[in-house]
Simulated scan of single mutants.
Amino acid sequence: MSTTSLTSAPSTTAPTPRTVLAGIPAYVPKPPAPPAEGPSHRLFLNENPYPPLPSVREAIARAATQTNHYPTIHPERLLDALARRLDVPPGHLVTGPGSVGIYQQIGQAMLEPGDEVLYAWPSFEAYPIVARMAGAVPVEVPLVDGVHDLDAMAAAITPRTRAVFLCEPNNPTGTAVGRAGLERFLDRVPGDVLVVLDEAYFEFYRSPNAPDGVELHHDRPNLLTLRTFSKAYGLAGLRVGYGVAQPAIAEALRKCAVPCGVGRVAEEAALTALHVETELFERVERIVAERERTRESLLALGWEVLPSETNFLWLPTGEASESVARDWERRGLLVRAFAHSGLRVTVGSAEANDLLIAAAKETAPPAR
């Protein structure tokens, strides 16, 4: 009987990743910046400038003592709390490690190779990645003056369209279409096309015309609304997002969720944050006030700044975007430059915003 030698030469071949990955950029929000003299301010990731409240930190510390145990498959206590908070049945809810985690579930549960995924551009950078990872075809509709062109988006829907991603308010421009425009658009979307309404900045939206995707989903079986604990609740480092949809969609997404994807520490922090919302939202009001103060100051200095309904500002600086970003980095302001397009600047602490205004005063605004 023949035997195979255990000392045969190693194979010269190796597993080959999917070919689609070659065309997908790595999700890198910003490369490390050179150290600046004095303090640096992280104004490129739309983070909340305030640390967790003491009660949230205490909940995190308690939960950390139990990290030798697995969390539940789904964060059942958080799901129950969200159901009560939002007045929706628990079966309408899905969670994930940030809303980005739920986008991955959407790709697995709702998209087939060759399907079209429609979204405005520029918008949330995960959209083309999610589409291509699922083998779907991204269809990008340009913004008009930084705002979703809903008429053009509706016209771009074809029989191959299976999902529409709509960021309201939009990242990176901070602009919003409002409830009336959104509802008119939703009325034009075929019922078999999933509409993902990304409300990551819902708590910063101050217009009286602001839509509420949770409310809208009750009468729209093709609507999935996403929200997050990363921004207003200040838990970006713990990764907790959730979605609200009719049961058929929510169940499909739960089937594709990573088991225990929201860990015990994250769940306890989110539960406590919900309990102290009043105190947290006082901070949100301060961020909104700083947003408006900073924007008015920049406008007075001759900079173009779009109206924002988020916790960041968009400066359409065009070809000068990267050079302005480099100049401000040397001053300790780490902002996000979109090449040939604009700057996205997170609303930071009052100190950071004052430094931004001082830097803008010393830098000539790009010619329009």
Rank of each mutant, 00 (worst) to 15 (best):
T4V: 15
S11L: 15
T13I: 05
A14T: 14
P17Y: 01
P17A: 14
R18M: 13
G23C: 05
P25N: 13
P25Q: 12
A26V: 15
K30M: 10
P31W: 01
P32C: 02
P34F: 06
P34E: 08
A36Y: 02
A36M: 02
S40E: 13
R42Y: 06
F44M: 05
F44P: 02
E47C: 07
L53R: 08
L53Y: 10
V56E: 09
V56Q: 06
R57A: 09
E58Y: 02
E58H: 12
A64V: 05
T65N: 07
Q66F: 15
T67P: 11
E76I: 08
L78H: 03
L79R: 12
A81N: 04
R84S: 15
R85T: 10
D87H: 10
P97R: 12
G98T: 06
S99C: 13
Y103L: 14
Q105F: 07
G107R: 11
Q108F: 07
Q108P: 01
M110E: 15
M110F: 11
E112V: 12
G114M: 01
D115P: 12
L118Y: 08
A120D: 08
W121Y: 13
W121Q: 06
S123H: 09
F124D: 14
P128G: 08
I129Q: 10
P142G: 00
L143C: 03
G146Q: 07
V147E: 10
P159F: 01
T161G: 14
R162G: 07
A163N: 01
V164T: 08
L166C: 08
C167G: 13
G178A: 06
R179M: 06
E183Y: 02
R188S: 15
V196F: 12
A200W: 03
Y205R: 03
S207R: 06
G213R: 03
V214Y: 07
E215V: 02
L216I: 00
H217M: 15
D219C: 07
D219N: 09
T228Q: 07
F229S: 06
A232I: 03
Y233W: 13
G234M: 08
G234L: 09
G243H: 04
G243S: 05
A245M: 03
Q246K: 13
P247V: 02
P247H: 12
A248T: 11
A250D: 08
L253P: 04
R254N: 10
G261W: 01
G261F: 00
E267F: 09
E267P: 04
A270L: 00
A270R: 05
T272P: 00
T272W: 00
H275N: 11
F281H: 14
F281V: 12
R283H: 12
E285C: 07
R286T: 15
A289T: 10
A289Y: 03
E290R: 11
E290S: 13
R293N: 12
L299Y: 03
A300E: 11
A300H: 13
W303A: 00
W303Q: 00
W303D: 00
V305H: 02
L306H: 09
P307C: 05
P307K: 01
P307N: 09
E309L: 00
T310K: 10
T310E: 04
P316F: 04
G318W: 13
G318A: 02
E319D: 04
S321A: 14
S321C: 04
S323V: 09
R330C: 10
R330N: 03
L333S: 02
L334N: 14
F338Y: 14
A339K: 13
L343M: 05
R344I: 09
T346F: 01
V347C: 05
G348N: 06
E351M: 04
D354T: 12
L355D: 08
L355S: 13
A364K: 12
